[in-house]
Nucleic acid binder design. Structure first.
Lengths: 209, 209
DNA sequence: ATAAATCTGTTGTTTTTACAACAAAAATAT
DNA sequence: ATATTTTTGTTGTAAAAACAACAGATTTAT
């Protein structure tokens, strides 16, 4: 459970403003849908406790995992700030979660500080998506993996690190099939590009591509 | 050449504010780089005339086309609003272009109206990227194509329409190989799902998936 | 600590994609 | 209007990915 003061979006926002802006606080149990594809929303959410995933499902119910939201992070803001746009994604509770709902328009009207924070949030989220697109647009699974691992390594400044995604999540994230990805991983290890055990990875040739 | 009054981002922004905010106005010739991967920027751009593409290049110089910017649209705002983030993309002039450069921090400080417009812009851009990710995350080229075509058809409310991308751009956009995509297109046509001639498409089975 | 559930790595088979090369069509320049 | 350049569609082949199925490892629940 994160305290309000530690939520990045609330930085510089006064307590009085907060009282006006927060619309509701709700609990959802593990596995339940917090938002569902096809609906619309004029509120966005802040995750107070627990963990949730943003996903897309096709007509057969196959889940495409888009990203993970952790404590203190915002979700569904793109839909809340775009007029009557139907959601193309769903939000699912990975654990029991607690969520703060905030009216998009009210937030803009009542707090300049919050507006600024929202811009920063959007900008960063945009970059995250940019990165995902970059990985996905590589032609082969091996290239997608290397693109992801290099990028992750760079962002944490180490050649040895733990990734936050398990195999099936990583496969979804990169838009590939899990088992095929596993076998590509072991090929990359045999070829000496990387070594790994579970979620712990090491880049063996940091300069090569 | 678009007039300032018609630029969506300037809606509700006074002329005085505009004078303060606009940092410079520059011309670039067809083919030149407007922004280059690896650099940083604290300004964002508005395209006044011409057309530009946002791309990513790999180490061999293969271009991955990310999206097209048309007159009146904003680009590079994610980087400008994220602190010292290195650009992972480049912007290239597709024709001779003219660009308005705006300091991100100045814009936020000097105009509340602009801040609101930036939020809307971000929200919509986010949705655009979401859509691209959705298409790309489909497993086969045929599914990616149908995902794109259905989505486009839905967004313009017709089952018969012209797409704004030529074949090689569409292939880049979907992250697949052009010629393979062409052959998938003709299979889809033979199978009766779609019909097309050039960039003119028709969805033959609007309800099916 | 043990059982149950989930996740991971591997393999063989089928399907799909990338790639290369080229002819036909279309767009652009002169 | 004609020539030149670019784009598109096609095909065959080699490479890669999806899929299915399963054993072993790991994690989670009790």
């Amino acid at each position: 459970m994160i305290e309000y003061e530690k939520i990045p979006l609330f930085k510089g926002v006064s307590e009085n403003e907060l009282k006006e802006i927060v619309q509701s606080k709700k609990k959802y149990s593990k596995g339940s849908y917090i938002l569902r594809e096809g609906e619309t929303t004029d509120k966005f959410g802040i995750l107070i406790s627990g963990e949730l995933s943003v996903i897309n499902e096709d007509y057969f119910g196959n889940r495409n995992y888009i990203n993970k939201i952790s404590e203190g992070s915002v979700f569904a803001e793109s839909f809340a700030f775009s007029e009557n746009s139907i959601m193309t994604i769903s939000a699912v509770a990975e654990t029991d979660v607690e969520i703060l709902w905030i009216s998009a328009q009210k937030a803009l009207r009542l707090s300049a500080a919050l507006a600024q924070n929202i811009i920063t949030d959007f900008a960063e989220k945009n970059l995250t998506m940019n990165r995902k697109i970059l990985h996905m647009s590589r032609r082969t699974t091996a290239q997608k993996l290397m693109s992801y691992l290099y990028s992750y390594s760079k962002s944490c400044g180490k050649t040895e690190f733990d990734i936050p995604l398990r195999r099936s999540r990583l496969a979804d994230y990169l838009g590939v099939e899990r088992s095929a990805m596993c076998s590509e991983l072991s090929k990359l290890q045999k070829a000496g590009f990387i070594s790994y055990k579970g979620s712990h990875f090491k880049i063996e040739k940091p300069d090569a591509e």
